[in-house]
Simulated assay, not measured.
Amino acid sequence: MSGSPTEAVELSSGVVKRSTLLADGRDLIYFDDPGTSLSPERKPDERPLDPRPETATMRQDVLTGEWVSIAASRQNRAFLPPAEFDPLAPASATNPSEIPDVYDVAVFENRSPSFGPLLPPEAPNAPHDLADLASIGLGRTRTSVGRCEVVCFSPETFGSFASLSETRARTVVEAWADRTAALSALPGIQQVFPFENRGEAIGVTLHHPHGQIYAYPYVTPRTARLLTSIEQYGPTLFADVLDSERNGPRVVLAGEHFTAFVPFAARWPVEIHLLPHRHVADFAGLTTEERDELAVLYRRLLRGVDALYDDPTPYIAAWHQAPVGTGRDTVRLMLQITSPRRAATKLKYLAGSEAAMGAWIGDLVPETSAALIREAIDRA
């Protein structure tokens, strides 16, 4: 049986953090809204759960040097269950869900993780370091050490970040910052990635408003390529990108601390990047004022994306952060929202050129896309 939540820890802007364990030993963390009406006491998890799955194994693709985690236990995860059996809703007598009591925002370790639960030094054949992972050879394997967490934005069964209140959105931002710091401190973690998948067209398996956080044992391929670009261009890459965009035709939304824009070489029909105005490596480095504004701007941005058409837009909202041990002074926190929706009833599918060769062909002129998104934000 799980234990009771630990003593409350007050975070930025009055958000309160309470930590406990699920029945199989996984971490569960409640993040209470400032001034919440919830009781500080939370019910324990009394489910009879099977032991956690073994940590998966990574295999190296010798053609690219990239690592692939083979996580067969994920085959058993829930797939679009009816609302009355929502595994992310507060538990009831007929729905023994993953969260045993009511909550505002809740974060817990994924029951079917792609990485973890073992970490160095307990994990056998764990990666030694980045140099070890960079070596190329046939048949190379390493344990998929790391952590995968689920971030429940709300106890409601349907919705997304855009449907949250401003107060609740701020609590989620605080949870992202707290978990980024905690996961970055775990042994063997090289990069932390918060994200939200929204819509069945993206492959979402639960309608509940939620996101995820992956803590990887390597620097991801996209970030590795970014580090190469910074090495070639210079350490001011992000500052120069922001300066070139802030007064241009592709800006869609701006505040005191952040600017959102369609990138110069957008790949997707809907693609928006958001950057902080000062250099900050990850969520944990944001000031209270920046977190306050981000909760407002990000929610407004997503509501604009939803207003593009008559029904909600499928998207991936990806929070790119600097790796834990490299590029901290040059890689800036960046949101990238992408959607394959190229018209009201049409999706962009990755066919031969994009999927096989990584050679993209854009469907919309980025300046045209920016104008459409600005108009949608105004309508929203």
Rank of each mutant, 00 (worst) to 15 (best):
F161S: 02
P113R: 11
V151K: 06
G116K: 00
G139H: 12
V151D: 03
R170Q: 13
S144R: 01
T171F: 03
S135D: 12
S112W: 15
L138G: 00
T157R: 15
V145R: 06
A123M: 09
H128K: 15
G116H: 02
V150R: 08
R142E: 01
T143S: 15
C148G: 06
R168G: 05
D129N: 15
D132M: 05
A131R: 13
R140I: 09
A126T: 09
F158S: 13
L133V: 10
V151R: 03
T157Y: 12
S144Y: 00
L118R: 04
I136A: 09
P127H: 12
S160W: 01
T167W: 05
P120L: 02
V172C: 05
A169T: 12
C152I: 07
F161D: 02
N110D: 14
P117C: 02
N110P: 09
T141Y: 09
E122G: 01
H128E: 15
A134D: 15
P121E: 08
P127Y: 10
P124M: 12
L164V: 07
T143F: 01
L133R: 08
F161C: 02
F153Q: 03
S163G: 06
A123D: 05
C152F: 03
T157W: 11
A123N: 08
T141I: 07
E166N: 11
L138C: 09
S163T: 15
P113Y: 10
S165M: 05
S165I: 05
C148Y: 02
R170A: 14
